[in-house]
Design a protein around this nucleic acid. Structure first.
Lengths: 354, 354
DNA sequence: TTGTACGCGTTATCAA
DNA sequence: TTGATAACGCGTACAA
């Protein structure tokens, strides 16, 4: 950082006082057109650029928004961040970005670091919804915060996709096709998206008057690895499901990997539903049915909620926005085959059979 | 931003002078252990957090790095940003992130905004390598800058993946399989990755003593749309290539879409090579050969180059780091079929035939 | 080793 | 409308 010109330099060049320069820059107070022009020319001439740090100190606001996600590499989160950034930029705010990798300690460190940097607002997907310390830190920051895909702490604004509705629609479709053993691989029920997905599945079963098969609801985390392991387990079991719903953004790649390894045919031997529409789900052969929603919209809404708080446009209680989801039926879903594929399972050994 | 406690508050509570508090915080100067502890307790008690804006002003450094990419949704760029962020965080720096969407105007605006915010360093993928205005702005900022996937302006440090080498390896493989008409779909040759890919292909032809078929080198931009359009065009032509190399991060999805639509069999009727390993390339059936490199490494190197400049560890001339690429042969590549698939083309009409 | 005081660049208040 | 000046919160040179 070399010595940039300051308001004082501008003032000297323009032959006015620093206060006047400031007034020209911020354009609010009244300045004689002639003087204004003189100042503006001086600014151009010496290449003056306001120092944001000094402005922040005086204004007690940084025009900065901190965004915390677990993994920017997940397409849905990347899309989210992208729209948040765009919306914030349009409002004159910059984005501070950090990945937590899902580690709670890292998350705490990042939140504190955002506080130190005086971020005017925060958009956060916490790693858990039941950590007192995290909740305490979040509250103590005293910074307007919007939760993304999290429903607690309830004192904050939050925006969540309607995963329950999505799973309901997917399960309805599968039940109508004749499936009675629909596996759901998802993350922890202690986090909203995991919990409501399970609820959605149960509701669909109840609606159809079919008893839910809880044994094929496989919870863990939202990783591709979990998807792979659970799908492998399910497909090797003595009573494999006739359909699998990958209930998490990264679950599908893992499930597909397991399916390929076992050499199972979709949809003949197994129906498959993913979460979030990606090149994989669209272009896979057969194309894979998905539960999807408008990633960009989620980001826009989250940013708007936050900006309205920061700018004092919203002062009422916490708001909760549910983003609609849509089930897209595709070739990966078909009626279950008459005969279970036990003969094929024998090919790969029956180690995990009952 | 409510009234946070300041060094003065800490000093009063601890019964020392503000200077002492500052010394404790920064831990460099010598402070009596007893006093240090007293201050630290006071900090804990009143929940003091340093004000980064004030610190920046004094230190004349913000501990902030600005990152500019065209689209964070592209997996390779997301991975890049992720590692850059992690590396910077470990060094005590935060990330300011912005998407340009490839628009040069937007890019200029963002760069100026980073300058105003006094970013200590910049990592940038410019939208073009031949824009005088952009080049001027970049130079005028006077901020340490690392170029990512760009080779100009040469005055900056830069880190680039060895796309030429990747294409050479891929083309060699295809030539050995017997292909003589290898299409390359890529972006503008005015941007390094586009230019060197074309060069790499020509080199491979030269090596093999086979005349290059320039007609099937299709340049444009690096978008999925371009991939789709060019693949559609090539596959509908009277002399279609027997292999396609998707020379850009987002080209492959578009090419696959075109191939699926035409109902062309891979690798029987067409061999295919992608750029960057994604779930699509790995899990597609057949799995798709790719040119790949260590995304994380690229980010780490770029961040290290930048940090070494910022911290004054590097003062010599601009450095250029070439990240090795690797060609991963997969089922999508096979010897070309004996008979051209003209009969099949008839199915879809021969509108664009010669 | 510790305390004091100035200045970083800006905005806002108060007189003129 | 314009100018002078006092903060904003912190780091550091200098004095003690």
């Amino acid at each position: 950082m070399k010595d940039r010109p300051t308001v004082e330099d501008v003032a000297r060049t323009a032959g006015v006082a620093v206060g006047t320069v400031s007034r020209v820059i911020n354009g609010n107070a009244s300045v004689t057109p002639a003087i204004r022009e003189k100042v503006q020319r001086a600014i151009e001439d010496i290449g003056y650029v306001p120092n944001a740090a000094a402005q922040s100190m005086r204004r007690r606001a940084t025009r900065t928004v901190g965004v915390v996600v677990h993994d920017i590499m997940i397409p849905a989160l990347a899309a989210f961040v992208k729209t948040v950034q765009r919306t914030c930029q349009d409002a004159g705010y910059m984005l501070l970005l950090a990945n937590t990798g899902g580690e709670i300690e890292n998350e705490l460190r990042i939140l504190k670091s955002f506080a130190r940097r005086q971020a005017d607002g925060l958009i956060v997907t916490t790693g858990t919804e039941s950590n007192a310390k995290l909740e305490g830190v979040l509250a103590a920051l005293g910074i307007p915060t919007v939760l993304f895909e999290r429903d607690r702490p309830e004192r904050f604004d939050r925006v969540i996709a309607d995963h329950a509705g999505g799973i309901r629609a997917a399960a309805r479709h599968l039940l109508q096709l004749g499936h009675r053993r629909i596996a759901l691989i998802t993350g922890s029920p202690e986090i909203t998206p995991g919990r409501v997905r399970i609820e959605g599945l149960r509701e669909a079963y109840a609606e159809a008057g079919v008893p839910a098969d809880e044994a094929v609801i496989r919870i863990g985390d939202f990783s591709s690895t979990h998807g792979f392991e659970q799908a492998s387990f399910l497909l090797a079991s003595s009573q494999p499901p006739s359909a699998i719903i990958a209930g998490g953004l990264e679950i599908l790649p893992g499930v597909v990997r397991a399916i390929k390894r076992k050499g199972i045919a979709i949809p003949d031997e197994l129906s498959l539903v993913g979460t979030s529409d990606t090149p994989l789900s669209e272009l896979y052969d057969p194309s894979i049915a998905v539960i999807r929603w408008d990633f960009a919209e989620v980001g826009r809404v989250a940013a708007e909620l936050l900006l309205s708080r920061i700018q004092g446009r919203a002062t009422n209680g916490p708001r909760r926005v549910l983003i609609p989801t849509e089930f897209v039926a595709r070739a990966s879903c078909a009626p279950p085959s008459e005969r279970p594929r036990s003969s094929r399972a024998a090919h790969h050994g029956m180690a995990s059979g009952a």
